[in-house]
Design a binder for these strands. Structure first.
Lengths: 203, 203, 203, 203
DNA sequence: AGTTAATCGAGACGGTACGTCTGGTCTTTAA
DNA sequence: TTAAAGACCAGACGTACCGTCTCGATTAACT
């Protein structure tokens, strides 16, 4: 997000304050937590809340949207390590990682909204994908590939599709349900089991 | 959407023009198709494009959002009848119905955006759910229940979860992928087959 | 100042409020009387004081400067009629008319400042000239011409120059002296007498 | 202008660069000559043009206005010596000295503007008076006093008023006329003659 | 030769105003 | 009563300056 300079150059003038950067991100989060609807956020109001000049925000981000990506990024919890004990265990952990947990849960409505808004800005959406979604997807792919190598998963299957089968239900339940009841930790297990076994009755 | 009067009363004065109503909805669609981002739509601009006064819009809808629901609704294709030949056939038809087809495809970016925006307005989101999503879900539930009755699907399964397993991957691919490559008609088949059979190798 | 429409056309839409127009002009005067320096006036502040949206000001005037001309114009006292009894009497009345009197005196600092600022905007300065300065000058010219016709003034003299000889000292004393002691009513008489008689000792 | 230190003290640290001082003054003149309106001058722009940090300007002058006095001062041509041959000759020389000539003419618009602006800042205006206007006025007073002593000018006359009669017309023509046609060298003669002789027809 | 201290260009900082645009409401004339 | 037009208050937009404040790098004079 820092548009300041190509490194190596001597970087002149007063350096940007990191404290100010944190104040701004924090202000956005605080406002959303206070129930201000995303549409009610304005650069002007964010600046007022953060006790910061508008130019100080524009110096760092080109607009609201870029600021939002960074807010979301700053709230993402890092992927926990996989248990590694079994295929099922690894899949459950990976799928569960899609749920909103920890800091990200400070306000589920927050992420709900920020995500929604982000889709209106294709560039940002794809930036978020490459920064947050893709790395997680790669972890999932690796787990699945190991499962195929072990013979635990049929080899004649499209990894990309399977990824969606596992992750999409959790995403939809997390971000799309109007009732906003966030899924609990047992949901990942149920999704993984259903997808692994299929719907056919046990033969 | 019409806030005009309780029916039965004689309704005096100049009647509202239905042509104007169509002009307004059409103007929204035209603007979105021209690539105007949803955030760039304003009542002012819509009125200008439709050749209509702002008040004429406010007289019909309480705001942009309510107008958007009507736009989306006007673009939804009605659910086609199920083939009814087999469980797999009915599931494929139902899942495929989630894809953007026909009029809805006039501009996929359009729906993509309107959906995104809609999530920011919880009331609208739930209204859309009850109008569009829920009826389709009920159709899907019915198909699955018949499958259980036939013995084609195991009975010990949560219908709601299965619904998500089938629909969510299609939704995510349709609305969330940044590359915006819309899924083709074969995707529904692949999803249904994978979910029916599971990931386990054939025994 | 009204940029609205060529008359004759039917003029549609809500008409501009004259009350609002007065509120705006009054707000400028009130602020200046409160001692706000001209440099401290901003459209934003004027709008706030007048209880008016900024756009409402910009709809009428292209900027601060045009607004100022109208303020000055609205404060100009109309030229009083000439006594007509004698050349000297008419000249004294005309020169005295340059002094700040009546409503214009509400705050001498006001005009002092508005004049100063106006000089920075050549277009306005010349507009003010044609609206306010020139008509007065024409009155003065007429008085002088009558004086020449009567034989009370030498005929071999440049009217324009004489105009300056009479008016400039009063202007300079009114607007340029840093001590800001405004000239009293006797000054016009002394200027006229000195200019009429010349500096030469009485022969 | 130098707010640095009471002289005599040892003054440590890097001394101020005189070159920088000249660069700044020159930058102001260059910008004004390029046709930038005075209102378009900003400390930021002056600093940019001079290739200088903003603080370097503020270290020397408290604001734009103080800088302007120094610019004007640096452009004033020193009063030329009086011819001393006759009363009329000395008066013409003195009045002519009010005209913009020589370096001051580099851009008449420049002084025109700087003067105008200066009136908005009473402190500066009076500073300019004591530095530039008053000395000239004292010269004029001396000439007039000598004329009275010689019997060339009537003794019953207010010197201050006469000063204005002579100087004001030239000032007004130089700084106030919207057409900006600067007076030529013959104007001083005509003013002096008219004031000396008066408007009465020759008896 | 090293220290001290004010200077330099650069540019970040919290503010305020700019002139434009939109949101909703209100007020006019015409149909 | 509705329609189109457009004025109205409010307030956000992104830009430009204000005057102050750090930065690292000079540049003397004083140790």
């Amino acid at each position: 997000m820092d548009h300041q300079h190509k490194d190596g150059e001597p970087r002149r003038g007063r350096p940007r304050s990191e404290a100010v950067e944190r104040q701004i991100l924090e202000a956005v989060i605080v406002l959303l937590e206070e129930g201000v609807p995303l549409a009610g956020l304005s650069i002007e109001r964010i600046a007022r809340t953060a006790g910061v000049g508008k130019a100080t925000i524009y110096r760092r981000w080109a607009g609201k949207e870029e600021l939002y990506v960074e807010v979301v990024q700053s709230m993402e919890s890092p992927s926990p390590p996989l248990p590694g004990d079994s295929l099922r265990g690894d899949l459950v952990a990976t799928v569960d990682n899609v749920r909103l947990r920890g800091a990200a849960k400070r306000s589920s409505a927050l992420l709900h909204n920020v995500f929604a808004q982000m889709q209106s800005y294709p560039k940002l959406w794809s930036k978020y994908h490459s920064l947050v979604v893709d790395p997680r997807r790669r972890v999932l792919d690796e787990v699945l590939r190991r499962g195929i190598a072990n013979g635990e998963i049929r080899a004649d299957i499209d990894l990309d599709l399977v990824g969606d089968l596992l992750v999409a239900p959790m995403l939809v339940r997390t971000l799309w349900r109007p009732d906003a009841e966030l899924p609990g930790p047992e949901v990942a297990e149920r999704i993984v089991d259903a997808v692994l076994e299929g719907l056919r009755p046990v033969r």
